[in-house]
Amino acid sequence: MLRLRTAFPALCLTVLLAACQPDSQNDFIAAASLPQPVTAIRTERAATITPETRYGSRALKNALPGYELEGVQIAVEDRTLWTLAAFHNGEQMLQILKGDDGAVSAVHGVSQRVAGPNGEQIGMTFVESGLRRSECRVGRNLWRGMAVCQARNAQNVKLVFSVPGYEGPFDQIPEPAQLRTATLQRIVWTPEN
């Protein structure tokens, strides 16, 4: 009977894997290692934040039911700043930046549980994203050495990748071999007006 118990889980796993054959090995790796998204950033919105959403605790609490807001300090390309972060079940999901006109100027998705417009998730590699090097530019200042890439079919969404152990040159995008292993760090949405 002991043999059956140990063989049965292996048989079940084999059947499950056969039923879930990925299109490519990278698809399987991404799907298997990243958690299920809780929210998404799309062209028209970041979670439930739209271009009409005002920046402020009350407006953002109304726009993000079930989230807690807290002040955090973040680094954008050219400076550090204090802003509001949205937490879901204790996990920081979004960083919301204020515009000059009192509206939301940008939302940064910073959790693996935030999906991008094409299913991108924080933690996936550049290769898994399906992007090309030509769709990226080199980050500057506080994001130097990072690749800032245009999301496919979403002109107002950028994907920011960090290259592990990158030592420069910092005025150009890392070489293709290094860029392959770059990790998605944030998904940046700016409202289209």
Score class of each variant (00 low, 15 high):
83 T>G: 07
83 T>D: 00
84 L>F: 13
84 L>A: 10
84 L>Y: 06
85 A>E: 04
85 A>D: 03
86 A>W: 11
86 A>F: 03
86 A>C: 04
88 H>M: 08
89 N>G: 13
89 N>W: 13
90 G>R: 06
90 G>L: 12
91 E>T: 04
91 E>I: 09
91 E>H: 11
91 E>F: 03
92 Q>K: 14
92 Q>M: 14
92 Q>C: 12
92 Q>F: 07
92 Q>E: 08
92 Q>N: 12
93 M>D: 07
94 L>M: 02
94 L>T: 08
95 Q>K: 00
97 L>G: 06
97 L>H: 15
97 L>N: 04
97 L>I: 10
99 G>T: 01
99 G>S: 05
100 D>R: 10
101 D>S: 06
101 D>Q: 15
101 D>H: 07
101 D>M: 12
102 G>L: 08
103 A>G: 13
103 A>R: 10
104 V>S: 05
104 V>F: 13
105 S>W: 09
105 S>D: 13
105 S>V: 08
106 A>L: 03
106 A>H: 06
106 A>S: 09
107 V>C: 04
107 V>W: 05
108 H>W: 10
109 G>M: 07
109 G>H: 04
109 G>W: 09
111 S>Q: 04
111 S>C: 00
111 S>N: 03
111 S>D: 01
111 S>P: 01
112 Q>I: 09
112 Q>R: 14
113 R>N: 09
113 R>F: 01
113 R>P: 08
114 V>R: 05
114 V>W: 00
115 A>H: 04
115 A>G: 09
116 G>D: 04
116 G>W: 01
116 G>T: 02
118 N>V: 09
118 N>I: 02
118 N>M: 11
118 N>E: 07
118 N>C: 15
119 G>F: 13
120 E>D: 03
121 Q>T: 06
121 Q>E: 07
121 Q>I: 04
122 I>P: 05
123 G>F: 02
124 M>R: 05
124 M>I: 05
124 M>G: 00
124 M>V: 03
125 T>H: 02
125 T>K: 02
126 F>K: 02
127 V>L: 12
128 E>F: 01
128 E>C: 07
129 S>G: 05
129 S>V: 06
130 G>K: 05
130 G>E: 09
131 L>S: 10
134 S>H: 10
134 S>I: 06
134 S>V: 05
135 E>A: 14
135 E>H: 12
136 C>S: 01
136 C>N: 06
136 C>Q: 00
136 C>I: 02
137 R>G: 09
138 V>I: 12
138 V>M: 11
138 V>Y: 07
138 V>A: 14
139 G>T: 01
139 G>L: 04
139 G>P: 03
139 G>A: 01
139 G>R: 00
140 R>G: 09
140 R>E: 15
140 R>K: 12
141 N>H: 15
143 W>D: 15
143 W>C: 15
144 R>I: 05
144 R>D: 12
145 G>I: 10
145 G>L: 12
146 M>D: 14
146 M>P: 15
146 M>Q: 11
147 A>N: 06
147 A>M: 07
148 V>C: 12
149 C>D: 01
149 C>R: 00
